[in-house]
Write a protein that binds this DNA or RNA. Sequence first.
DNA 1: CCATCTTTGTGCACGCGTTCACAAAGACAT
DNA 2: ATGTCTTTGTGAACGCGTGCACAAAGATGG
Lengths: 254, 254
Amino acid sequence: MATGRTHRPATRSRGIPEATVARLPLYLRALTALSERSVPTVSSEELAAAAGVNSAKLRKDFSYLGSYGTRGVGYDVEYLVYQISRELGLTQDWPVVIVGIGNLGAALANYGGFASRGFRVAALIDADPAMAGKPVAGIPVRHTDDLEKIIKDNGVSIGVIATPAGAAQQVCDRLVAAGVTSILNFAPTVLSVPDGVDVRKVDLSIELQILAFHEQRKAGEETAAGDGALPAATPRATSADQGPDGDVPAVMPA
Amino acid sequence: MATGRTHRPATRSRGIPEATVARLPLYLRALTALSERSVPTVSSEELAAAAGVNSAKLRKDFSYLGSYGTRGVGYDVEYLVYQISRELGLTQDWPVVIVGIGNLGAALANYGGFASRGFRVAALIDADPAMAGKPVAGIPVRHTDDLEKIIKDNGVSIGVIATPAGAAQQVCDRLVAAGVTSILNFAPTVLSVPDGVDVRKVDLSIELQILAFHEQRKAGEETAAGDGALPAATPRATSADQGPDGDVPAVMPA
DNA sequence: CCATCTTTGTGCACGCGTTCACAAAGACAT
DNA sequence: ATGTCTTTGTGAACGCGTGCACAAAGATGG
C-alpha cells in the first residue's frame, strides 16, 4: 500500500480513527456492489468477507459512525451506503485537477473511478506548450501558466500530481499557494507542505521493493529450513544467494 | 497510501518490523540521491529530513539492520546504499509481468522506475487478441493464453495486475497457480490468495476518498469554530452542509 | 407473553509502532 | 593522553489498532 499522511497528529477527528477512515471506502465499495444486486441487508460477517477484513474490526469501525445495525438481522445496505458516503464527504462534488499529463496522467484522466464517486476532473494541466489544447479523455489540456486561475475559478481543493519527480515540489507549492489543501502524489519524491495540507502518496517503485523484500525472504526460508510448502518457486536469477543472514558484505567503506 | 498486506501475521521476519521495511525504500531513494552528489556521509538528522521522517525512527529502523553508523559522524552513504539494497533483495534481478495493457498498464510499462532498481519487465500480457504482438514501451504484448508459459519460462515471481476489476481475481488465480507469489494489484477489487502469497494494492479511488474525508472535516471545522487559519477554501459545491455532526439523516430505511 | 436464536456493540487485553531521552561510543582538538 | 563535543543506538513509556469473547438487543416462533 502506498500510504503516507502528513499533517495533524491524528487528532482523532470527531472520534473516527485514521485506520477506520482508510477502510470506509472498502466497505462502501462492497456495499455498493450489494446494493446493485438489490440485497436489502447484510451481516457483519458477510460484509467483512466481501471487504476482506475481520468481522469484529468491521463492527468496531461502524460503531464509530453510530449504531446503524439491527441485532439479529444485520445492516441495511442502502442506509449504510448513504451513511458512509456522507461520512466520507461523497455527497458533495469534489473538483480535482491532474497536473502532469504524461503516460500516467493520461491514464488517470481516463480512469472511470474518478467520476463514479463524487470526483470530477475539473482540468488537466501540463507544462508542455505542445500539449496545450489537445484533448485527453475528452478534456482539453491547459498550460501550467493558468494553474492558479484554474484552481480558483473551479474551487478546486484536491490536486493530483503526476509529473516527473523533479517538478513535483514546485507544482505542489503552486497548488498549495492557490488554495489546494489535499494532494495525491504519484511522483517519487517526498513533498513538504505546510500544516493543514494533507498529502497521500502512491509509489509504484516502493511497493515493488516491499514485495521484493518478502519475496527474498520466502526464497531464503525455503533454502534454509526446507518446509516445502510452496509448490513452484524456481531457484531464480542472479548472484548473492548466500542466504539472508550472516553473509559478509561484499563492499566495505574505508 | 494504498497499502494492504495479506498473508503471514507479521511473523517479524528475521526481526525487521513491517513498518520499517516499508520505509527502507524511502531511505534508499534519499541515499541514492546523496550518492549521486558524491556526499560521503550523512547524519540521521539530515537523512531523516530528506526522507520525511523523524530521526529517532530512522535510527531505530537502521538498528534492525545492524550497527552501520559511526557515532559522532553519521552513516557512510555508499555502504548504507549497499546494505539496504541487499536487505530489500535488490541485488538480484526480479522479472515481473504486467497483466492488462490498457491506459494504466501501458503507463506502468513506460514507467522508468521499473528498470532502475532490479526490476525488469519480462512480459506484457493482455486478453485482447488485437493487442497481441503490438509493441508497448518497446515490448511486444503477449496474449493471456500464454500466461502460464511466460511465468514459468522467465521464472517470474512478481505480477502486476492492471486489468479491469472484473478480470482481476481470475488473472490473480492464474498467476498464483503458475508460481507467482507476490502481486501488486491496481484493480479496484479485493483479491483472495492462498497463504504464502503477498498482495499489495494501489487504489486511486480509495486514496481520493480518504482525502475527501479530511477535506470535508477541514471545511466543517472552519465553519463551526472559526479559527480562520486556512486562507482560501471557498464555500464549495452542493447540498448537505449542515455540519458534520448531529444532523438528521435524509434517508431512513423501514 | 415467553423462550430461543441470531447478530450487534463493546470492554478488555495484547502487541506493534512511535517517540523521548540518555548513556555509550567514537572523532577531534589540545 | 585527556577532555570535549557530536551523534549513534536503545531502554522504556505511551498510544493506537486489533481481535477475543461476551453481554445486550432485537427478531422470530410457539
